[in-house]
């Protein structure tokens, strides 16, 4: 009993995380403004990190945690890049310098 119990717990956690991801996706689809969508994307990334971690524990392969760490890194950079693009309309720093001089 006590050996199958962890799998059961992780399965429940996985299902709950999956439902949460779907709810966030609904907000991503409905979101009236751009910033709602960026917020949902960021939140979805956090959910994905947790999802990958729990999946690794469920399948007894904790190597998945490396992928989760990598996904957290990429998610942060992606959010900042999207926001920077929408504020300055460029990813590089040429336009920012011009704006600061104004």
């Amino acid at each position: 009993m006590i050996n199958t119990m962890p799998h059961f717990i992780f399965l429940i956690a996985l299902i709950l995380l999956f439902i949460a991801m779907i709810l966030v996706l609904i907000r991503l689809y409905k979101g009236p403004t751009l910033y709602d969508r960026v917020l949902s994307t960021n939140s979805f990334g956090t959910h994905t990190v947790l999802f990958i971690g729990v999946l690794g524990f469920l399948s007894d392969r904790p190597d998945f945690l490396d992928i989760a760490l990598l996904y957290a890194l990429i998610n942060f950079v992606a959010t900042i890049a999207i926001l920077k693009f929408f504020r300055y309309r460029a990813i590089g720093d040429v336009l920012i310098k011009r704006e600061l001089k104004k």
Binding site: L23, V24, I26, R27, L39, H47, L50
Partner: peptide, 10 residues
Amino acid sequence: MVIIGALGSL
């Protein structure tokens, strides 16, 4: 807690 956060954002 995670699902409450998602519910709140909805």
